[in-house]
Amino acid sequence: MEGVHKIYDLGEIQVHALRGLDVTIYPGEFVAIMGASGGGKSTFMNMVGMLDRPTRGLYQLDGVDVSSLDKVEMAHLRNRKLGFVFQGFNLLSRTTALENVELPALYARLPPEERIERAREALRIVGLADREHHYPSQLSGGQQQRVAIARALMNRPSILLADEPTGNLDSRTSVEIMGIFQRLNKERGITLVLVTHEPDIAQYAQRVITFRDGKIRRDEVVAHPAVAEEVIKNMPVVGADD
């Protein structure tokens, strides 16, 4: 991203959410985005996720200038290259875990057999192979978030965007989710961009970018990222997460 500005025109007032952002995220990185609310984190994520486009500036994804794409091209790119994980899970209710995971493949127009096969594999990666016919209401928060991660993995994206993925979860489950992210990052080389306001969650990333007032305040490499699997071993077991 080079010199990205985002101005929301709300009629009488204009909100300058991003004020000239220059940042490069490399393939295979695990980046945490931090900052107070209103600092531009969410706007930045919407830009990266191609849900919104910059008012000014350049955003290139794998060498493609996203600002020049139309809505349909953006939707296709979103579908194939990006996976979203939200704070509120955003699963379709009254739809089974498997069908939720399948959703991106429907829009990628994959044939049904391959769709189901891939969805099962994605559920297996997040450790929910035995829950495929459960509805979101029958799953715990951590499990729902894992379904959401499986959904994000469905079309084998190169980038995973997680917006406060642990915001609604207890600390142990949060660490488990971070463990999944670290594994995906390490084993599959998926680029991870994680928005969080919890410093200890950010410690699982390799690089932390801090936003304030629409600008990057700090951009630093984490010397020794925490390893979720080790942290979990040292955590007291309060009861199985089920």
Binding site: V72, A75, R78, R80, F84, N90, L91, L103, Y107, N155
Partner: peptide
């Protein structure tokens, strides 16, 4: 509305 948002986020186009 939320469902529509989810579908769009995972790659549904307007025509979808």
């Amino acid at each position: 509305t939320r469902e529509i948002g989810i579908r769009m986020a995972v790659g549904a186009t307007e025509s979808d």
